[in-house]
Amino acid sequence: MTLLITVFAAVIATLTWYNRKNDDLKIEVLCFMYWGASLMWLIDAIFEFAELKADYFAPAAQDMLNDAFLGLAVVALGLVIWVCVLLIKDPKGSVRAALKKSN
């Protein structure tokens, strides 16, 4: 479930990056982060599948809920990191302009 949610987040981020008007929003940060995590969880899933075989596809409801919750938390953390990178790098100069403003 965590892998699925992260893959969906990666695909949405990539499509958003493809349709971007400019690089001001630094969407590529999100793409790399989500794709990196998706690939790593894919390996995790392959090893788990090798161990559990068909049982891998029939997880307990409680485990699935926990994994879904973790997946959403991972997506949220990715978004928070992206916003922090955006504010620190400040490609549009919005933060600097706001800080230089007298009032």
Binding site: T2, T6, E28, V29, F32, M33, Y34, W35, G36, A37, S38, L39, M40, W41, L70, A73, V74, L77, G78, I81
Partner: peptide, 13 residues
Amino acid sequence: RLLIGGAVLLAFE
């Protein structure tokens, strides 16, 4: 970026 991004999110897990 791929490696750091993945490692950070996996560390969170």
